[in-house]
Design a protein around this nucleic acid. Structure first.
Lengths: 153, 153
DNA sequence: GTACGTGCAAAATGTTTGCATCATT
DNA sequence: AATGATGCAAACATTTTGCACGTAC
């Protein structure tokens, strides 16, 4: 797989360093949506002396190359979260806690399937914007513990 | 409308101060997705002595109440952007610049209409997550100036 | 009158940058 | 050999917080 990575990186004009390999693997292997610091924690035991700045730099490079995405926003503590650029998937974002979870795969896929690609095409035509990824976030709450006073419409 | 705002705020358990009114109006009236500082600039001429901290506090309160949303992420310069919680709409997010634009209203609406609500319902059932807003972001680029080397699938 | 909001400034993040050194190509 | 990546630490920007005072309820 190191071989594949080598290839993948050079395809996108990126040098293949052990730091980048480790960061990219950690990003792909992570079950959630790690922050830069979480990736740093994950990687620093495997790559001696790696620095947080390198993690940021690498993530920036990966995002530029289209191999990763920033999710940020999220509202929680204010740190940006990253996502390996796999297939499109669907996030559940808790407005209160900033927590981000993935929707069950099958459901996410079924929902995304319903987005008509001809409308996306029309949009690309009309706006001159090239869509490379669809990111559907459902914003809401995980535990509606009490209804408080939210008739919310 | 001040009256309506009064009402709206108290519905959500928020006190109605002139600062909050001004910030909320500026947020609704803004044609893009302002940052906290942009809102501060916009209101400080109308509300004497208002402070940036109040803008942040108010935005936090509005988000908590569900009257506004954080967009952040965006990648650009790193400041969070906010969005009045109007109807769901669709953002175009440039991966390179962090720029965020709204899709043309009609297209956005048509695309969102195609998301089957029974799937959303099923998801709410299965995950215990309460969806209050659907946010669809199309990530890509505004000016595909050159194809570089992105066969991107 | 009381609880909550405000303003100010300081503190706490989170992220970026400059520069010398090192590794990949 | 040359270009680009790394590590470190300092610089930067953004966001949060503590406290005294003011204001909406």
């Amino acid at each position: 797989m190191a071989d594949t990575l080598q290839h993948l990186f050079s395809e996108h004009g990126l040098r293949c360093t052990k730091q980048r390999r480790a960061i990219y693997k950690a990003l792909c292997g992570h079950c959630g949506h790690p922050t830069a610091d979480e990736l740093y924690q994950a990687v620093k035991s495997r790559v001696e002396g790696i620095s947080l700045a390198t993690v940021y730099n690498t993530l920036e490079a990966l995002c530029c190359a289209g191999l990763a995405y920033k999710l940020s926003g999220c509202g929680g503590n204010g740190s940006t979260r990253y996502d390996a650029a796999g297939e499109d998937h669907l996030h559940l974002r808790c407005r209160k806690t900033g927590q981000v979870a993935d929707a069950p795969d099958d459901l996410g896929r079924r929902i995304l399937e319903h987005i008509p690609s001809e409308l996306i095409d029309e949009l690309q035509h009309r706006t001159g914007f090239t869509v490379s990824k669809i990111q559907l976030d459902l914003v809401g709450e995980f535990k509606p513990r009490k209804h408080d006073r939210e008739p919310v419409a």
